[in-house]
Amino acid sequence: MVALPAVPLIDEVVDVERRELHASEVPWSTVVWNDPVNLMSYVAWVFRRHFGMDAPTAEQRMMQVHTEGRAIVAEGNREAMERHVEAMHEYGLWATLERAPR
């Protein structure tokens, strides 16, 4: 057996690459979660009104929330996603933000 190096070299390389990204450039996602209360018509309307989605896109995202339990509705920097999450809470939708999958 070969002894593993004490420091995981691969992670280190990844870390170096990540450090080059300014905090404002790290992508985040706004996620809307399914709840049993909000009406489907209302959720689709919120997506149209707040995000400016066209009707088919809003309908598709709403159905994704409904059937898969969650959908990503916006991506961007952290501050912008926090504003979206707060707006969703104003509308009574259950939303969170998280780091976008990379």
């Binding site: 926090e82 707060e86 809470h89 104003e90 259950w94 969170t96």
Partner: peptide, 28 residues
């Protein structure tokens, strides 16, 4: 449910969010 956390798996960020945003959101 009216004032949910903005972060699901990061309690520190969720607490910071509550400190900065929760009251104004509740008032609105």
């Amino acid at each position: 449910r009216l004032l949910p956390d903005a972060y699901r798996d990061d309690e520190e960020a969720a607490a910071e969010w509550r400190r900065l945003s929760r009251r104004a959101l509740a008032e609105r």
